[in-house]
Write a protein that binds this DNA or RNA. Structure first.
Lengths: 207, 207
DNA sequence: TAGATTGTTAATCGATTAACAATC
DNA sequence: TAGATTGTTAATCGATTAACAATC
């Protein structure tokens, strides 16, 4: 257990570890060493041990980590031992797909409200989820005490949307708009930019 | 112009710069300084200049960068001055959404073939795109000389799919499956793991 | 010219990894 | 016990940023 600052990279890896531990649990495997993590996930075993050590001494020397209890520890660290309601803004193709995807996963972070500004979409349903007008966004977020939002609006609307989300009390945003959001202290943003990822692949192609 | 190795991070930023330059072009703006990039993109101006300097002396001291010519330079570096055919494997919710999204963008990297292993999906269309059986994947890739693939299959099928893609000649993969792919030298992979991004946001929430 | 901005070096910062004593 | 593996330190590696001479 250390007092060093914990990096975003460490937190994201915790989520990756958690998913791996879930598959181990399902396979009935009870122990895993940091080298098992390295082999399966491609993350250096010292890195794995270091990531865990920020939060506690979870392992047993000579033995490794107990799958069940490590799973619970990480789940608790990430707050994923409870349901976390999430809202999504922008019910376009991508946003709609993320809703379906989220339903399939049965994730503890569940999309419970969807908003769009288009009268053509408002009132439609994504399975059981009703698409609501953005005008109701702030009141619904406050009512449901939603702290996490997913932004899938066009780039031009992203900052405005984010500002309103913050004003409603949102503390964390997963941003799919290709725009860097300017956020106040204490609000977390994760940008997902798979278009940039795709384009960066083109660099390596032979001409 | 330097001989230092160019990082993946630099390449991804080039794609971000390119998108910014496109908006400048559309606004009719002809010059931009590295500080303009910093202000809009939140990337340190020294970083911006360094990224460019790997590839040439594109700027003019005291003036900045010419938007049009810098756009063309980066486009050429990334091979995005030509159409690049892309295939997608796994026509589930996410894969289907990526197809629609790609069509809307009119991207130079265009999804031209879609494959799925489910008889329920094969034969269906995503707009003009016919979903083909995975059995035809290798031959179609070879015929169309496709070098880039997007994997949106379930985790359990991802490595097998990737192996077959490589055998067909694919050189670069955008991987949405939550599995680290083991790839031979010379094949590029970009992993997109927005579930891990979402879960990492939960860490910062107050309990 | 004076002001602005590049390209580049050197310094800093942070993240990854090797190594190993402790110990199960 | 002997072998395995942790937790942690120190070394390494790489990426970011400050600073500034060059020069438009």
């Amino acid at each position: 257990m250390s007092e060093k600052k914990i990096s975003q990279a460490t937190i994201k890896r915790l989520s990756v570890y958690l998913r791996f531990l879930e598959t181990l649990k399902r396979s009935g495997i009870q122990k895993a060493s940091s080298v098992d993590f390295e082999k399966k996930l491609g993350i250096n075993s010292a890195q794995v041990r270091k990531d865990f050590s920020f939060f506690g001494d979870f392992g047993q020397k000579g033995v490794g980590y107990d799958v069940d209890s490590l799973f619970k520890e990480i789940q608790t660290i990430l707050n994923l031992d409870q349901k976390i309601p999430v809202c999504l803004i922008g019910a376009g193709k991508l946003g709609t797909a993320l809703c379906y995807f989220n339903m399939m996963q049965k994730d503890p972070m569940e999309i419970v409200s969807v908003f769009d500004n288009s009268p053509l979409k408002v009132g439609n349903k994504i399975e059981h989820l009703l698409i609501q007008p953005v005008e109701e966004m702030i009141s619904v977020i406050q009512e449901k005490k939603i702290q996490v939002a997913i932004i899938t609006v066009p780039g031009g609307y992203a900052q405005y949307t984010a500002d309103r989300l913050i004003s409603a009390g949102v503390k964390a945003i997963l941003n799919f708009a290709p725009i860097p959001l300017k956020m106040p202290e204490g609000v977390q943003v994760q940008d997902v930019d798979f278009t940039a990822d795709l384009h960066s692949l083109a660099y390596f192609l032979s001409k």
